[in-house]
């Protein structure tokens, strides 16, 4: 599990590039530094917003290389276990543990669960992209930054139940 390269296709690849692209020459960075950074957090966002998506079967790709995947394998396996526990939260402990822990070396049996995991990755990516680049008709860097901050405020509310009052 997680020992092969991973690729984003089509519209998802475009979204990844935009999330990493420099906001401007002077700012010199984008929202995320690497594709992996996005890949790591995306499934959680997908779960928070209950959003799943399918692979967009077109040419363009953006990849995470095998080397990087293997370096981060433990973290990704950790993510996988959490996602399975969340998605299958209603099942019995035995079933849940089977799916989350016992299929590490059984690629065939794990296929359908990998697909579920991946669908959350893509859904989460779409959600982040929309929150930052499309919300409120944003078109300038400052507006993207404002959207980012509001996204964080919203997540803060959703995850930690904290409402901050505006001035």
């Amino acid at each position: 599990m997680f020992d092969r390269e991973y690729a984003f296709y089509g519209k998802h690849a475009k979204m990844i590039e935009k999330l990493k692209a420099n906001l401007s020459d002077e700012i010199g960075r984008g929202f995320f530094e690497t594709t992996y950074d996005i890949y790591q957090v995306a499934p959680f966002i997908g779960w928070i917003y209950r959003r799943r998506s399918k692979i967009d079967k077109t040419e363009e790709t953006t990849k995470i290389f095998q080397g990087k995947m293997m370096t981060e394998k433990n973290d990704l396996v950790f993510n996988y276990r959490n996602m399975m526990a969340l998605h299958f939260g209603d099942r019995s402990t035995e079933e849940l543990m089977n799916i989350a822990f016992k299929l590490d070396y059984n690629d065939e049996a794990r296929k359908e669960y990998d697909e579920i995991y991946n669908s959350y990755v893509l859904g989460g990516l779409e959600e982040m992209y929309e929150q930052i680049f499309l919300k409120d008709g944003a078109s300038t860097t400052d507006e993207y930054i404002q959207n980012l901050y509001e996204f964080l405020e919203e997540l803060n509310m959703r995850l930690y139940g904290v409402m901050d009052e505006d001035e």
Binding site: E150, E153, E154, M157, R158, G161, M163, D166
Partner: peptide, 14 residues
């Protein structure tokens, strides 16, 4: 309902 309230009030304040 909480999240809806949060989103709407933020919009109105803006």
């Amino acid at each position: 309902l909480d999240m809806i309230e949060f989103g709407i009030l933020r919009l109105e304040r803006k």
